[in-house]
Amino acid sequence: MEGMEQWKVQVENWSSQLRELLHQFLQHVHQIPPAQLYAAIAVLSLTTLFLLSIRLFRRKKSNTIVLTGQGGSGKTVLFYQLRDGSSHLGTVTSMEPNEGTFILHSEASKKGKIRPVHVIDVPGHSRLMPKLDEVLPLAAGLVFVVDALDFLRNCRAASEYLYDILTNASVVKKKIPVLILCNKTDKVSAHTKEFIRKQLEKELDKLRASRSAISAADIANDFTLGIPGEAFAFTQCQNRVTVAEASGLTGEIAQVEEFIREHVKP
């Protein structure tokens, strides 16, 4: 009982002290000129905002891999090979991107924590090109799929597509690595990756001339390609451009997976 009483008194004491303090503080605040007060508040809130935004911007490195290339080159098959290790019943022309965040099928049995990969398969139909511009800025790596079987017929169109990608602002600025993937190598008549690389370089070289002429008009590419006065080679690109082979249909996609893991660390 006694203790209780005493305790009550104590509490009352404290609270009066507190009230006193608060009063003093308020008086003090009143003495400060308002301009100064506002400035202090502004500084305080700005710093918090700043700290917060740093938090936000220093996000994890992107884990997005974008599959792109002409229609029929085998992107969707590749997407499902990466995800499920199977091309299921086959594919038809895509009308919308396929997108998924998953652990690569080949790594599914691995132990330990593996970082999933966010893969986007952008349809090749040129009417859907605007979609590509949306996803390029997100990419940690870009796989440009080329049909090695029917390459010669598509060479020019593929080069034009590749030109647009290699001169795209985000690709150049962020130095997004590009893998040129010669697909469908399960067939013996497929062209070799060396042949394809050379042909693409040749075509891109020509495009460089005509495209830079066009830039006065509407379709202005943001950046020019390669070094002026020198024959174009992929090694001149700011970003890393490599060539690899694969067969999506039969699941020989080790080189793509290697590329993905190089740029999206497990």
Binding site: P130, R156, K206, S210, A213
Partner: peptide
């Protein structure tokens, strides 16, 4: 989608070809 050209409209490239 409709207005985006289906094929390349780079005439100069075609001229060079």
């Amino acid at each position: 989608r409709i207005l985006t050209p289906r094929r390349s409209i780079d005439i100069l490239r075609d001229v060079h070809a």
